[in-house]
Simulated scan of single mutants.
Amino acid sequence: MYDVTIIGMGPAGLTAAVYAARKKLSTVLIGEKYGGQMATAPGVENYMGFQYIEGPELLAKFEENVEKYPVVRVEGRVVKIGRQNGQFVTRTADGREFSSRTVIVATGKVPRRLNAPGERELTGRGVSYCAVCDAPLFAGMEVAVVGGGNAALSAAYDLIKIAKHVHVISLEDWIADPVIIDKVKDAPNLTKLVGYETVRIEGEDRVTGIVLRSLATGEEKKLPVQGVFVEVGSVPSTDFVDGLLELNEKGEIKVECDCTTSVPGAFAAGDVSSIPEKQVIVAAGEGAKAALGAYRYLLNQK
């Protein structure tokens, strides 16, 4: 029996673990991927205390803090959270169960798929969801980036330094931060394609092309690319809370300003919650709030 179970090992979950442990709460931290999206993030320029820091380097600093405290770490995919005898029971895919008096959900989001023909079949064979991880594999090649937000243009920035040519494909005009747009807009090996949807991704063993359709004319065109980086946003990782916690129309866990959810004793923090801004620094702050909220909740229990 733990005081708190924290699900998710991104910036929200790791910060929550430190704050919970500092309050002398017995804490178990469960997750599939240590660091979450931060582990593969490109350079971070908006985290206070650092003019510039790469995601893995920032994660290492988070990890140094966590290691100072008696936090039990468990690698595993959580498949269900339930209530039993007034306690929370967290079950992992391999059948393990963890009981706790409170729970903090900080599982973040996962990349959204295009759901275009060929995408799933060619994932890992030219289709990628992580430019930081896979960009070096496409040195000297022609690639496409699908999306027009911060993630897409950050991917494009990584790729223009490596690839022969980068096509950035989006339904609408770019909506990224101006500082990111400025880094790529004048790149000689970048083509901006606005007003196009992806029809299919082609290839047998590897990606050989992407077929687009113009939203204005309906005309289709094929780009002979060897890589497709899908950067069209993400979806909350909330399948395992279905039936327990209330979600909003986006599938995010509804929270109040103190990270409380629809169930007393259950808290949510970071990108998985309904907070409006999805940033590393915001997620870390929300993780701290959730842990302090769990501590206050336990103090008030008889």
Rank of each mutant, 00 (worst) to 15 (best):
N300S: 06
T90N: 02
L137Q: 10
R213F: 03
A39T: 02
F98M: 07
G76Y: 08
V168E: 05
E32D: 13
V110M: 13
V232E: 00
D186F: 01
Q37A: 15
G118C: 04
V211F: 02
T27D: 12
D173I: 07
V66H: 02
F50L: 00
D271E: 11
K183N: 10
R113C: 01
N46C: 04
G76M: 06
V71F: 08
L59T: 02
G13D: 02
K164F: 03
E64Y: 05
A21C: 03
P276N: 11
V145G: 09
V89I: 15
A176W: 06
I180T: 07
G10P: 00
K33A: 12
L159I: 13
G8N: 11
H167V: 01
Q51W: 05
K33V: 15
L298Q: 00
A176I: 10
G251M: 11
T27N: 11
T123N: 00
T260P: 07
K254N: 06
L223A: 04
V207M: 03
V78E: 09
L137R: 08
G293V: 02
A41Y: 07
V110D: 08
G95E: 00
V146Y: 09
A144I: 03
L193H: 11
A290V: 06
E172V: 11
N65F: 00
L247A: 06
R213Y: 01
M141Y: 10
T198M: 02
D134Q: 02
F138L: 10
G287S: 01
K109L: 14
Y295H: 10
T92C: 07
D173H: 14
K61V: 07
R83N: 13
L298G: 00
Q37R: 15
A144W: 02
T107A: 13
G147A: 09
V145A: 05
V225N: 08
G118P: 04
G43W: 06
A106D: 11
T217L: 01
V228E: 01
